[in-house]
Design a protein around this nucleic acid. Structure first.
Lengths: 200, 200
DNA sequence: TTTTGAAGTCAACGGATGTTTACTAAGCGA
DNA sequence: TCGCTTAGTAAACATCCGTTGACTTCAAAA
């Protein structure tokens, strides 16, 4: 109460900020959808996590489907932003570390979200586009030519493997996989990437 | 109509056969749960697929959860039956071929079901047990000792990769992965298995 | 043929879910 | 300060979901 004016002076945090609550909903939805899947999460769950009224989901995203699509595009944007439009890390070591990284921290893995389905056609299109571009850049990063179908297939296998690992790690308590550290996980993953994406 | 008596004489196909309808429900549920996941599947969907009344699910399996658990144990039994209690195929080639098999049947199908979750504790225990035993046998098949944590982790990574590939193949239309033939898929997978499970 | 227990049907229930509507209140410009 | 736009709230609605209980029908035993 006393420093309310200071806060307002600092960043103008309006008590009612549409952009802010929209982002809160998006973050909460991302976690829920990634962890529990689309149909297992309710809009009330998301709203409660965000500390926000349920009706605001319909207002800001039109529907649960719309919120899910927003999560997907948000994930797309973040991947594009963090990795830029440059090719992915070139060494198998770096790729392996990228796969193992988010899992070992608390972060929801983008690849796991891509395994979730809402049954909606628009969402499926977004998902497919991201998967495609990801695989293509992965193939290009190790020197595969654009029209090398074999290398593209191998890149997609790497992607699928990474997604499966992330999913199994978080969803099942399979030990030692579930609580393996990044250091534990990188060597096998490096071997995996190395074997699948070697330029030969 | 004419050979009705022959049928009855042959296998006694009672018009009302509890075991038969139970199996119909189990088959339909297996397909639905594997393809759409637990919470996206309704008991009415399953009953309709099986051509059976909805109430019979509660009768024969007590609940939707019970039906899901029955699916899991059925999957466990079939895996045990097809692969026997003998160690898995020893060569990376054979393992790869098993992973690359038809997604609508066989090992990939079962692995995808294992990625599905109902949130129920009993179901999770069943799933975990199957995953564990599978990983252990996979580690043993390539000569890993029972207490080699590193090799066990690598076997679990192979398992997770196989599951992810199966899931991505069936759920997303990612090409060329989605419609890759077994022959297309075996070489990369052989490399994958080889790199992860080499005895060294 | 009659009886009896099991197999299957039907309709309704309580509850949860996504969405909408009518309403309140806060912030900003005039 | 007043008024208007917009953020947020509360409650209800319509629908769907899993489950239950009473009823009917079939087939095998007596």
């Amino acid at each position: 109460m006393t420093d309310l004016e200071d806060e307002r002076a600092a960043t103008t945090p309006r008590r009612r900020d549409a952009a802010k609550t929209r982002q809160l909903l998006l973050d909460a939805a991302l976690q829920r959808f990634t962890r529990d899947g689309y149909s297992a999460t309710t809009v009330r769950d998301i709203a409660d996590d965000a500390g926000v009224n349920v009706a605001l989901i319909s207002r800001y995203f039109k529907s649960k489907e719309g919120l899910f699509e927003a999560c997907l595009t948000s994930s797309v944007d973040e991947v594009k932003r963090t990795t830029g439009d440059s090719p992915l890390s070139r060494t198998p070591e770096a790729i392996a570390r990228q796969i193992a990284g988010p899992c070992t921290k608390g972060l929801p893995h983008h690849l796991v979200l891509l395994l979730r389905s809402s049954g909606d056609e628009g969402a499926d299109r977004i998902r497919l586009n991201l998967l495609r571009s990801y695989a293509e850049r992965l193939a290009a990063a190790v020197g595969g030519s654009a029209d090398d179908e074999g290398m593209l297939l191998r890149a997609q296998v790497v992607l699928a493997a990474a997604a499966g690992i992330a999913l199994l790690r978080t969803k099942s308590g399979l030990e030692p996989l579930a609580s393996a550290t990044e250091e534990d996980l990188v060597p096998p993953l490096r071997d995996l990437v190395d074997a699948l994406l070697k330029p030969h």
